[in-house]
Nucleic acid binder design. Sequence first.
RNA 1: GUGGGUUUAGCUCAGUUGGUUAGAGCGCCGCUCUGUGGAAGCGGAGGCCGGGGGUUCAAGUCCCCUAAUCCACCCCA
Length: 435
Amino acid sequence: MALQRPKGTQDHLPDGSSGSHSKAARSDTRAEAFAHVTETARRILTRGGARLIQTPIFEEADLVRRGVGGSTDIVRKEMFTVHYFGDHGGFILRPEGTAGIVRAYLENGLKQWPSPLKLWTHGPMFRAENVQKGRLRQFHQVDYEVIGVADALIDAEAIALMVEVVQTLGLKGARVKLGSIGDPADRETYNGYLRETFTPHFERLSDDSKDRLERNPMRILDSKSQTDQALIAELGVRPMLDFLGEAAAGHFTQVRGYLDAWGVGYDLDPSIVRGLDYYRRTAWELHHEGVGAKSALGGGGRYDGLSAELGGPEIPAVGWAFGIERLLIALDAEGIELPQQAGPLLFIAALDPEHTGLAAQIALQVRAVASAEFAYRALKPGNVFKEAERRRATYAALIGSEEAASGSVTLKHLQNGTQHHVNVNDLNAFLLEPS
RNA sequence: GUGGGUUUAGCUCAGUUGGUUAGAGCGCCGCUCUGUGGAAGCGGAGGCCGGGGGUUCAAGUCCCCUAAUCCACCCCA
């Protein structure tokens, strides 16, 4: 096929655009379902005081490398770089939202706003990954960040908000997996412990885990290899939570205390490892069985170290993001139908070509108070209703010579079948009456 | 980067052991229907069978390459 979108991208089409209303477009490409997710997130997050922020979808390469972390797969092999003529270090299509938001916070002096500053955004992210279920090269996230406060109360609020967004959309099967990766010193201690523990048994590790032992030993713990899991059990490997320092342990206890008190459910998961380097302490993922191999809808955590890493002052922060495509997959798996754009309140058509302009004029008049569409050409009476029905209109109106002469329309409510002659001057008011 | 499956109309799919002009359902357009919709009937448009190469008298069908897509590994949302 000559015309083909780039690998790992999707067109977001109007809902139902495959032709029939009974057969929806593919669940992961419905533009109106997407909009419903972001609108729901906006409503919930802004109620909590979050302000909308939008940052560029490309950033300086150096910002992304330092923000995400040089040891991550994202930086090692998944970046889309932007080249152009000129003497410059290059740009990168953003693989996640946090680094750009923290950059904007520092660059624009947002620290003078009341603290903590709660921000939210949504938009496309880019990773040069191989494609599979719920994994795209351009995907979309809803992103929430709270900058400026280190208190555990803020972590707990962030988790509660994330859960509220997906539950408000109707999702039932999502579970929070909660852990803590401690402070950097704690993690260093723990990684040392893991290396000491596994190195004598190096040959028994899977090939992937042999790699992990050097790069990121914590990854061994959630390996899918049965031999790895058997070895972990046999050695009685202790969890990260045992190695939390006093400060991190206290913080984690507080987070859990708030969630318990508020009735926000979660599963304690000591093997939680975040993919990005900047995380500290609280880390969590939101999982759902419907979304494929990795089952993660999204994740979040505290990243008190990022600001300094980017060259700013030490500023504590916590945030999360979820993938909109993955959320739609999960909703689809639960059979949840999201609302799509409603049809017009009025569809109006003329019976004769000389009145089509009048029909359009009336539609324009009605648009002052409601949605209205018109037929661009004259229709036979039967087809007026057929066309109105196809557009899912509430009312159909037709104009023949009698109506045109008397300045009225014949108006029919398509659901209950009631019909009236309404003067054009009274039409707007009539349409607004409850039917 | 690796392994496996798939690719025929807008969508979901048939297509015999290779053999004339490639089919169905839904959808789309029109007619029956010039003052009343959802139905039904009839008619129509729409395909270089993902792309390229090869075998053959003959390829949607067999072989090779390639792309996309789906599932999985690594890893992430």
